[in-house]
Structure formats: structure tokens, C-alpha cells
Amino acid sequence: MKHYLPAAGLIVVLLLIWEAVARSINLLFILPSPSGVALKLWELKEVLLFDHLPSTLAIILIGLAISIVLGVGIAVWMNMSKIAERAFYPIIISSQMIPTIAIAPIFIMWFGYSIWSKVVVTVLITFFPITVSTFDGLKSSSKELRELLLTMGAGKKEIFFKLQVPSAKPYFYSGLKVAVTLSVIGAAIGEWLGAQAGLGYFSRRMMTQFDGAAVFAPIVLLSTVGVVLFVVVKVLEHKSLKWRNMK
């Protein structure tokens, strides 16, 4: 717990400064105070938690699931075939050059206001770190260990499962940690551009009503979702890579 004291202290100090500045400016519809945001969060708790959070969470989880399957699948394929690597890698990189915010309206046109337009935005933004890190992880396996396995008579399949997969796991988790934080951004962007529910949608709607505190309240929830997802991945990583904790 002591470990987190400096961060907690800094947050408290920043919140106090924010509170003081907000009160002195006294334009709460533009710059709400943290206490105002907390009050608004309490006021809107039912609408936010039961109407909008499930909708955003569904986008995030479906998007992440698709990204993991797609990302790991493409990474494994690129690892197995040089041609696949040459074909996919440049496309994957260029997919990240497209400004997501600019292309998102296209998905709204294609998929309408359904969940899928937002899921596609989330996938577009999250599959990249998963694919690239998993691919790098598969490639990172030690040449010496590979040769040792060959001297023991291992075939391609054994080398993949007993060497490459375990070598790639830490990389995969690194990619996933980046992806879960990006997934929240992806879902929020998707919702801003066209949705009928969701925390991002709610925040944008409140902006048009000049209700600063109500803009911030769902953002606080979105950040909490990001932090919780990150912690979940950290716990999974810790359990799955026990050997790293022993050092």
C-alpha cells in the first residue's frame, strides 16, 4: 500500500488545486469543481451505471475479444509464413496511420447506430498493439533454446508450443495492457460519433447542455473502467507468468 502513497498524495494535491481554481473562476458549467463532479456522479449513478455503463462495457469487451483473436491469429500466421508477414505487416502499420476519428463516421454509415460501428472503432484501435507485440514475442524466442530443442528431436509444432508461445506471453500481456486502455478511448470515440447509449454518448449529450459536471461524471467512470481492466490484465499476467515474480 505504501508503494502507492506518493501517487495518492499527488492526486489529492491536484484535486485540491483544481477545486480552488474552479471555485475562484466560478464558471462551473465550463470548469466544474471535483466536488461538483462527485456530486453529479452520485446524482446520476443509476442512469450511468445501469443504462450507459453496460452499453460501453459491451463495446469494450466485444472489441477486445475480437482484437485478441484477430491480433494473435495474424501474429501467429505472420510468424509461420514469410509471405503472410510481408503481406500483413505493412497493412497493419498503415492501418494505424489512419486517424481513427476521421474514419469512424464511415463505420457509422456502414453499421448504423448499432453496437458494431463502435466495436469496429475499438478493434481498429486495439488490435495493433496486440498483433505487433505478440508477433515480436514469437520472434523473440532464443535461437540457442531453439537449437537445443532441435538437438532433442523437437519438430516445428513442439518448438512453437514449448518455446515460442511461452516466449511470446510477456509480450502479449504488454500489448494487452496497452490495448485495454486504448479500448476505452475507442469505445468513447465511437459513441461520440453516433450512439443511442453509452458513457461517451452521455458525456457528449451533456456538453450540448453546457452541464460541465455531467460531462465529467461519465469520464470518471470511463477512466475507472480503464483502470479496472488494466488491473485485471495485471493480475492475469502475474498468475500466468509466475516465473517472473520469483526473481
Binding site: 537445443l148 528431436g153 514449448k162 511461452p166
Partner: peptide, 17 residues
Amino acid sequence: HGKVGYMPQQDLLMPWR
């Protein structure tokens, strides 16, 4: 491959096993 036992210079144990 697999016909002799080989022990390398570094132990080359798999750290995850």
C-alpha cells in the same frame, strides 16, 4: 537430431518451466 544428449555452455533452462 535427438540422437545424442547435449548440454550447452549456458545452462539454457527455460525460465518459465
